[in-house]
């Protein structure tokens, strides 16, 4: 997926959770991505955030710790 599109999708999710109670926001983003993002999308997310994280909503960055890193390439 194009990096811009992936960033856009992650930020869109973050935008929703920004309005949710503060203590649930990061966990909400992480849960959502864990539930609906296929490993190669999560893998790309980590590749991008590991490199710089530029362009991502801060809420996405703070959710990273709770997002499951995909297992090695199948």
């Amino acid at each position: 997926m194009s990096p811009d599109k992936l960033t856009y999708m992650a930020n869109q999710i973050a935008k929703f959770f920004h309005s949710q109670p503060e203590n649930e926001a990061a966990a909400g983003v992480a849960e959502h991505i864990n539930k609906f993002w296929e490993p190669r999308m999560r893998r790309q997310l980590f590749e991008m955030t590991d490199a710089s994280g530029e362009g991502f909503d801060p809420l996405v960055i703070s959710a990273l710790g709770e997002i499951r890193r995909p297992e090695a390439q199948q």
Binding site: F36, P39, M41
Partner: peptide, 8 residues
């Protein structure tokens, strides 16, 4: 693991 959605 969840799979790919159509747009994905």
């Amino acid at each position: 693991e969840p799979g790919l959605r159509i747009p994905n």
